[in-house]
Design a protein around this nucleic acid. Structure first.
Length: 424
DNA sequence: TTTACTGGTGTGAATTACAGCGGTA
DNA sequence: GTACCGCTGTAATTCACACCAGTAA
């Protein structure tokens, strides 16, 4: 290596290029077509008819360009000063993977979108459900890095990820927070009209909006659980999800239930052709009965009250007896006197952190009001508050010495004041 | 006397993005 | 002829780790 360094940096690089290229083959200095020439076997002068490859964009370049474009077009909304270095893309998780039991609902984009979720942008969308569905349905290939807020608000997630991203911690978070009952308790304002022919169209209506949506993965919704006068429908993970019966204030920040875990798994179709044939048959033969055969639950909520009127055309009866029974009133009562676990001030809050132990001591773990859960949440918060991601320096003096030590290409070299040199 | 530790850089493995190609409808 | 899809190969990028000398433990 040292013998190649004669002519300075440029020569050094050129020599390396020549060495790395196959012998007797002339490679152009442009980076792209080398493979084309090398493929042309023996002839040293091989002319390729292939169209030269277009310059490749760097990863995240498209993202950055889009961000710049958006900031140019809408400087008030997309502020480039919040544009942080995008995180490395992770493998997209496929929401309907049948083996997956992950508790993620991919409707929020966190990674690589720091500026997109920055507080100025977090305005209430005009069309709530559309917003959700667009992130889940209209993007068949999940944007990498999409994660679910899973128990924390959008703002929390945003801050969390801007501060530090730790998959293990997220896993811990999900485990420790366990089942998100709170999201299950949401009361629905969803009116779903399903299954016209083979398409599932989701519709939603409240006092001011009514939206229809097209096919979304083609999964029927209507699976739910009953409790007293309520019947709860579970939207599919990428479809319509339960909405809280709250005022329009923060509904879009709330987490949702992962329906995959409570939905009977069924196998994907084996053959596309067969499916198409069945589809045609169904279209031709069973149009009148399609609305009867499929579960359709109409739910209207005109007065926005908790007692939503239910028009049940045909009660869904899941074949498998996987039905979640939830004592809604009891859960509500249990949580009524507790503040939301997601509304705390996170890392910076020293007072809250110092208070954790005291609060833990006061919690009756075996009370019927969920003391175990509160303790678990507090432990988790304390753990998250005190976790370290940076390198821990155990000996500060060694750091000082290392900083003073001379280096050559990052490696320590003998200092001019070393005893050996003095002796020599 | 031995060993662990300290930080910046180089390097190879791993990962990701994407153009190009062939097959099919 | 065209569009779509899946596969393959390559370039670009990220990541983890070794390396080095001096010194405290």
């Amino acid at each position: 290596m040292s013998c190649l360094t004669g002519g300075g940096r440029a020569t050094y690089k050129l020599d390396l290029e020549i060495i790395k290229s196959p012998s007797n083959s002339w490679t152009s200095q442009s980076s792209s077509p080398s493979s084309t020439l090398s493929e042309s076997s023996n002839s040293p002068i091989a002319i390729s008819n292939r169209k030269p490859r277009t310059p490749r964009k760097r990863p995240n370049q498209t993202y950055n360009e889009a961000a710049a474009l958006l900031s140019t077009a809408y400087p008030k909304i997309f502020n480039t000063k919040h544009l942080t270095k995008p995180c490395k893309f992770t493998k997209p998780h496929y929401p309907f993977s049948y083996e997956s039991s992950e508790l993620v609902v991919p409707y929020q984009i966190v990674e690589n979108s720091g500026f997109l979720l920055h507080p100025p942008l977090l305005e209430k969308p005009n069309c709530p459900i559309e917003q959700r569905l667009m992130s889940s349905c209209d993007k068949p290939c999940q944007s990498p890095g999409e994660i679910d807020s899973k128990g924390s608000s959008s703002l929390d997630v945003c801050d969390e990820f801007q501060e530090d991203f730790d998959a293990e911690s997220i896993l811990d978070e999900e485990i420790e927070e366990s089942v998100n009952i709170d999201s299950i308790m949401g009361k629905l304002n969803v009116e779903s009209e399903l299954l016209k022919e083979t398409n599932f169209s989701f519709s939603y209506s409240n006092s001011s909006h009514h939206h229809n949506f097209g096919t979304c993965y083609g999964f029927p919704i209507g699976l739910g659980f009953e409790n007293g006068c309520h019947q709860y429908d579970f939207g599919m993970r990428n479809g319509v999800r339960p909405l809280r019966n709250v005022d329009d204030g923060d509904w879009w920040r709330y987490p949702s239930v992962n329906v995959i875990d409570i939905t009977p798994k069924f196998k994907p179709p084996v053959e596309k052709k067969k499916k198409k044939v069945e589809k045609l048959v169904e279209l031709r033969g069973s149009e009148p009965s399609s609305t009867k055969d499929n579960s359709i639950i109409k739910r209207t909520n005109k007065d926005n009250s908790s007692q939503s009127i239910k028009e049940e055309v045909d009660v869904p009866k899941p074949k498998s007896a996987l039905l979640l029974k939830l004592n809604y009133d009891t859960v509500l009562n249990a949580w009524s006197d507790k503040e939301s676990p997601f509304s705390d001030d996170m890392p910076g809050s020293e007072a809250a952190g110092n208070d954790v132990q005291a609060r833990l001591a006061q919690i009756d773990l075996f009370s019927e009001n969920g003391g175990m859960r509160e303790a678990s949440v507090l432990r988790y918060k304390e753990k998250r508050r005190t976790r370290l991601f940076s390198k821990k320096i155990r000996y500060q003096v060694r750091k000082v010495n290392a900083d003073r030590r001379p280096r050559m290409k990052g490696r320590f070299v003998k200092s001019p004041n070393s005893p050996e040199r003095e002796l020599g």
